[in-house]
Amino acid sequence: MLINGLAIMAACMLAGTFLGDMLGLMLGLKGANVGGVGFAMLFLILVTNKLKDKKLFSKAAESGVLFWSSFYIPVVVAMAAIQNVQAALKGGMAALLAGVLGTVFCFLLVKPLSSLGGKQEPLPQFAE
């Protein structure tokens, strides 16, 4: 059933977020969630792999998960539409420079640091 896929996702999400909240509390960060979604993602990978090995993860359940992962871009578009763009512009030059320079220099980190993991093949081209 499709809902089973969603239920598994929900369980992973709740477990991960809870763990992230606990980690935040233990580190003394009031209200901060440390890696909650990251843990949830790991749980989802591990749980679905296990279930697939045992042939317990049906096609319908899978389609529930796949629906959400293709729903991701529309959610991101909605997220962009609710950003506080005014606040970004109102900060003036100091905020603009801090934001822009901080971003540009971090972009430059990507190439040298990713070569640490050895040479990586680009993903194959795909038709949209």
């Binding site: 979604v37 991101v76 909605a78």
Partner: peptide, 13 residues
């Protein structure tokens, strides 16, 4: 919704 959708992309990673 954002976190739920982000998390679902891990499927197949």
């Amino acid at each position: 919704f954002r976190d739920f959708a982000i998390m679902s992309t891990a499927y197949g990673a």
